[in-house]
Lab assay of single mutants.
Amino acid sequence: MEVRTIKVFTTVDNINLHTQVVDMSMTYGQQFGPTYLDGADVTKIKPHNSHEGKTFYVLPNDDTLRVEAFEYYHTTDPSFLGRYMSALNHTKKWKYPQVNGLTSIKWADNNCYLATALLTLQQIELKFNPPALQDAYYRARAGEAANFCALILAYCNKTVGELGDVRETMSYLFQHANLDSCKRVLNVVCKTCGQQQTTLKGVEAVMYMGTLSYEQFKKGVQIPCTCGKQATKYLVQQESPFVMMSAPPAQYELKHGTFTCASEYTGNYQCGHYKHITSKETLYCIDGALLTKSSEYKGPITDVFYKENSYTTTIK
């Protein structure tokens, strides 16, 4: 009895394709271990004539594949690729409408935090270190965002349907971005203890939790000093293409032309909904596939993004 075979390709990165001759009487799992086709788990399936010449994702289970996976995804987590594939199996079914010149995501599976993050990423200057993220990001900007969303979920250790947080998501993504040249110098002034300067680099240099107003941050924000008295913390120097200011959701007025974009969060910790506000020729609110415009805006804002380049204080 002759062994019926077909020729397929296996890959971990969709760049390096490895030619395989597979036995049609055995499952993919018996031949390769966990195997995925377009995100779908085909591990328990036997090869079919229609699979001839198709590319299958496999887990990096030998040295060659491990090197290829690390170079593309910059992670050695053995569960990463499987999590990416199972997320992709959902995100490829989502709709990605162009809204006001940006790629958004039609609401499904509690994905409003991903839509808000995706919209924000198209408006701030950011370059990702893992080629996987950078490639998928370019495709997302062009309207094909399924891979990018699935990668975000995998890097953030999230599953489809789980509630997510924009600030946490951005923080994970910033860790995989090139923020080497970003720098922030802060000064804390206390009447009792004097003053202390701190220099922050990388992710810490672009994120701040405690106030939404970048102007206020430049002037000074009140913080408790270690001595128990009130101290003032203010920005001395900022070198970065953008800054992200966050605070627990509270009524906040966004003035046209003073910011790049913002995240609105309605609801409580267990259950809520994100919308995205962007400042173009007027203010726009993007909620999944829905767009509304207004000249002014007041609502429960939790993150505001500002364009920056270089700032030095005039406070002496």
Score class of each variant (00 low, 15 high):
2 E>G: 13
2 E>D: 12
3 V>K: 14
4 R>H: 13
5 T>I: 10
5 T>Y: 14
7 K>Y: 14
9 F>W: 11
11 T>C: 09
11 T>A: 04
12 V>M: 06
13 D>T: 06
15 I>K: 14
18 H>F: 10
19 T>S: 11
20 Q>E: 11
21 V>H: 13
21 V>F: 14
21 V>T: 12
22 V>W: 06
23 D>A: 11
25 S>E: 10
27 T>P: 15
29 G>K: 09
31 Q>N: 11
31 Q>T: 13
32 F>P: 06
36 Y>L: 04
36 Y>C: 02
36 Y>D: 00
37 L>Q: 12
39 G>C: 13
39 G>K: 00
40 A>F: 12
41 D>F: 06
44 K>F: 13
45 I>M: 12
46 K>M: 15
47 P>Y: 02
48 H>A: 14
49 N>T: 11
49 N>G: 10
50 S>P: 12
51 H>P: 05
53 G>A: 13
55 T>M: 08
57 Y>Q: 08
58 V>F: 11
61 N>F: 14
63 D>C: 08
63 D>V: 11
65 L>S: 10
65 L>P: 04
65 L>D: 09
67 V>A: 13
71 E>P: 08
71 E>K: 11
73 Y>Q: 01
76 T>S: 14
76 T>E: 11
76 T>L: 14
77 D>E: 15
77 D>V: 05
77 D>L: 06
78 P>G: 11
79 S>I: 10
79 S>R: 12
80 F>W: 03
81 L>W: 11
81 L>V: 14
86 S>H: 09
90 H>Q: 14
91 T>V: 08
94 W>Q: 04
96 Y>G: 04
98 Q>N: 10
99 V>A: 09
102 L>G: 06
103 T>E: 06
104 S>R: 02
107 W>F: 01
110 N>K: 03
112 C>P: 07
113 Y>H: 04
113 Y>F: 08
117 A>W: 01
117 A>S: 09
123 Q>P: 04
124 I>E: 02
124 I>G: 10
125 E>H: 05
126 L>D: 04
126 L>Y: 02
128 F>G: 02
128 F>H: 02
129 N>V: 07
129 N>L: 05
130 P>K: 01
130 P>G: 09
131 P>I: 02
131 P>Y: 06
132 A>W: 08
134 Q>F: 03
135 D>S: 09
139 R>G: 06
139 R>E: 13
140 A>Q: 02
141 R>G: 05
141 R>I: 06
142 A>I: 11
143 G>N: 04
145 A>I: 02
148 F>K: 00
151 L>C: 00
153 L>D: 04
155 Y>S: 01
156 C>K: 05
156 C>M: 12
158 K>W: 01
160 V>C: 06
164 G>F: 02
164 G>E: 00
165 D>C: 15
168 E>S: 15
168 E>R: 15
171 S>Y: 15
171 S>M: 12
174 F>G: 02
177 A>F: 00
178 N>H: 08
179 L>R: 04
179 L>A: 01
181 S>D: 14
186 L>C: 11
192 T>I: 11
192 T>V: 11
193 C>K: 14
193 C>M: 05
194 G>I: 05
196 Q>D: 07
196 Q>P: 02
198 T>R: 12
201 K>C: 09
202 G>L: 02
203 V>E: 07
203 V>G: 06
204 E>K: 13
207 M>Q: 06
208 Y>K: 00
208 Y>I: 08
209 M>S: 15
209 M>G: 11
210 G>S: 02
214 Y>E: 10
216 Q>A: 11
217 F>Y: 05
217 F>K: 04
218 K>E: 02
220 G>I: 02
224 P>K: 14
225 C>L: 02
226 T>C: 09
226 T>G: 14
228 G>E: 01
232 T>R: 08
234 Y>C: 04
235 L>Y: 02
236 V>D: 00
236 V>L: 08
237 Q>N: 09
238 Q>N: 01
239 E>A: 09
239 E>H: 10
240 S>Y: 02
241 P>L: 03
242 F>C: 00
243 V>Q: 06
244 M>V: 09
244 M>I: 07
245 M>R: 00
245 M>P: 06
248 P>A: 13
249 P>G: 08
250 A>V: 13
252 Y>E: 00
253 E>G: 08
254 L>C: 04
258 T>H: 13
259 F>E: 01
259 F>V: 03
259 F>K: 03
260 T>C: 11
261 C>H: 03
262 A>D: 00
262 A>Q: 03
269 Y>L: 15
270 Q>T: 15
271 C>G: 15
273 H>D: 05
274 Y>K: 04
274 Y>L: 07
275 K>W: 05
276 H>L: 09
279 S>H: 07
281 E>I: 00
281 E>G: 05
281 E>T: 07
283 L>F: 08
285 C>Y: 01
285 C>R: 06
289 A>F: 05
289 A>M: 09
290 L>D: 15
292 T>I: 04
292 T>A: 08
293 K>P: 11
294 S>K: 10
296 E>S: 13
296 E>F: 13
297 Y>K: 00
298 K>Y: 15
300 P>Y: 14
301 I>G: 06
302 T>N: 04
303 D>A: 00
304 V>I: 10
305 F>T: 04
305 F>M: 12
306 Y>D: 06
307 K>D: 08
308 E>P: 10
309 N>K: 14
310 S>H: 15
310 S>N: 09
310 S>V: 14
311 Y>D: 13
315 I>P: 15
